[in-house]
Design a binder for these strands. Structure first.
Lengths: 153, 153
DNA sequence: TTACATGCAAACTGTTTGCAAATAT
DNA sequence: ATATTTGCAAACAGTTTGCATGTAA
C-alpha cells in the first residue's frame, strides 16, 4: 500500500520527487493529489492515448485512487488548458492524447487502437481555402487501417 | 401539409413515384414505408449531413412518422451497406453523410456544422506507410474552423 | 403466410452535475 | 480561513435492444 505514498514530508521536501507539480503550476492549476497522480501516469512513459476509464482503472490498480468523475474532470481540464488533446475518432469514447503537437493518427479498425504518425495535418491546410471569416485552427487526419486480406493481393 | 402523401394508390401504381425503391432493392433491402421515406429525405436535395434525431424530427414534421429507434436502425443499415457514411467528428452524436465519395470536411466549431470539401483524403495516403499487415482503407480529414478574430490580423 | 421491420419502453454506455466532505493554499 | 477539488450518486445524452405488433414479399 505504499507504492505511492505522498503527502507527509518530514524534512526539506525533496524537490525532484514531484516533477509534475511544476507542470500544473505552469498552467495555473492547483496541485492536488489526483492531478499529480494522473499527470504522472500520463507523462511518465512517452506519448499515450487514454480514455477516462482506462486511466481511472490504471490509477486505481496503482493504488492512486481517483474517482471516475474526477478523472473526467481532470482530463477535461488538462485538455482545456492544452496539456493533453481530445480526439473524436470512434464516435463513442473520447480519447485523450498526451501528444499535443501537430500530428496524425492511425486507427486500427480491428483492435480500436490509435497510433501517432509524425505527419502534420496543417500542411494540408494549403490545399484548402477556408470560408470567409473563418480560419483553420486544426486539421485532424485519421488513417483507418484494416488487416490486409491475404486473398486480396 | 400534403407534401408526402403516400400509401393508398388507386390504379396502376405509378412506377416513377418511388425512385428510391430501386435504390433499396439494389442493396437487397426491403422497401418499407419508413425506409423509402427516409431515403427520400436523404437523397432528394443534394448531399446532406444528418443525425438520427434531426432526420427523425424532419420526417415527423413532414407527416412521415418513423420512430427514433427505426431511424437509428435505418441509418445504421444504410451505413452498413454503404448508402450513407457515418462520421465521428464531434465525439457525441454520430453524423451521417449522404456523400460516400472520398472527400474531406470543414467543421465549424462555433455552430457545429459540417460541410464537404472536394479534397480526397486518399491522396494523403501516399505520404504514409501503413504498418505491416495493414492497409489504409479510409482517410478522414477534418479542417476545424474558428471564426477569425478581428484583433488577430 | 411468413420472415422481416417497426415502435415502444426499458436497458445501456459514456459523460456531466449537485452537493456534502475533504484539501490546497 | 477559504476557495477549490473530490467523490458519490443521480441525472443526462445518445444509442441499442427485447418483444409484441404490423407489414412487405
Amino acid at each position: 500500500m505504499a507504492e505511492f505514498s505522498q503527502g507527509s514530508f518530514t524534512a526539506g521536501a525533496p524537490p525532484s520527487k514531484y516533477p509534475h507539480r511544476s507542470l500544473l503550476e505552469r498552467y495555473g492549476l492547483r496541485a492536488t493529489r489526483q492531478r499529480l497522480g494522473l499527470a504522472r501516469l500520463l507523462f511518465s512513459k512517452g506519448n499515450r492515448h487514454v480514455t477516462a476509464d482506462t486511466l481511472a482503472s490504471e490509477a486505481n490498480a496503482l493504488k492512486m485512487p481517483a474517482s471516475l468523475a474526477t478523472v473526467y474532470n481532470v482530463l477535461n481540464l488538462f485538455a482545456q488548458v492544452g496539456i493533453v488533446r481530445g480526439l473524436a475518432i470512434e464516435g463513442t469514447k473520447t480519447v485523450f492524447d498526451t501528444n499535443t503537437s501537430d500530428h496524425s493518427h492511425f486507427f486500427f479498425e480491428d483492435t480500436g487502437e490509435i497510433a501517432d504518425i509524425p505527419l502534420a495535418g496543417m500542411k494540408f491546410a494549403d490545399d484548402v481555402m477556408p470560408p470567409e471569416g473563418y480560419e483553420i485552427v486544426k486539421v485532424d487526419v485519421v488513417f483507418r487501417l484494416r488487416r490486409k486480406t491475404s486473398t486480396n493481393v
